[in-house]
Nucleic acid binder design. Structure first.
Lengths: 114, 114
DNA sequence: CTGTATCCAGAATGATACTG
DNA sequence: CAGTATCATTCTGGATACAG
């Protein structure tokens, strides 16, 4: 409670930082967005949807999202292989945040110079 | 409406991408978070609050946030200089999203392995 | 105090080839 | 089809010096 704290209550950034750490990869929110919209996407469909993401980046980001339990990866044991990605329950609970961000973007990209 | 679109309606990512582009800097959300919590912060207070951000990074990110009209920079013409940062109206409208993300973080950082 | 400019190390990213 | 590995390149971020 030193001077620099002033009259302000303690601010707990940890949960906020945790949340950010899960989604701040360059493509993570985009990946989540598309899987949310399409429900289930194969690797190649996802790559096409994202457009200019590279093979390596998509693989890396998908692995991290899966490790963070935001995505579910389902692999079909067949040749050629088929892999589908969908939202995990945890990932699903994050979607309202993305939706809100999307709504905010809609409302604020129309009047960019306000 | 070609085959690869399937039965899915068109998805408009532009506003979403716009929103992401404004906040995906490494420190931007943290900066916004602190200014939101403290209402007004001087440069040096912000630097202390963020902890391990470097001088250069903070300057850069602040300039971008100001250019994107999310922050207001108020400079007092005195020596030594004094600069205060606060949320712009536009920045303020983004706070519900940050709050939601923060809430999500709280709920999901307690049961990491669920 | 609040910045900007420069230089540099390390991380992020991309192109490509290879594997199951 | 869905990935992994390797290497080259680009970009981010940090240390430091300097300026108003």
């Amino acid at each position: 409670m030193n001077k620099q704290e002033g009259n302000l209550e303690e601010v707990n950034v940890a949960p906020f930082s945790y949340a950010i750490s899960l989604i701040d990869g360059k493509w993570k929110m985009h990946i989540l967005f598309w899987i949310w919209k399409k429900e289930i996407l194969r690797y190649s469909e996802l790559k096409r949807a994202l457009g200019n993401v590279t093979h390596k980046m998509l693989s890396t980001q998908l692995k991290e999202l899966e490790a963070d339990n935001l995505l579910i990866r389902r692999e079909y044991p067949q040749v050629p292989p088929k892999v589908e990605y969908s939202l995990s329950p945890k990932g699903f609970t994050l979607m309202p945040v993305l939706e809100m961000l999307c709504t905010w973007g809609k409302e604020n990209s129309v009047d960019l110079d306000e």
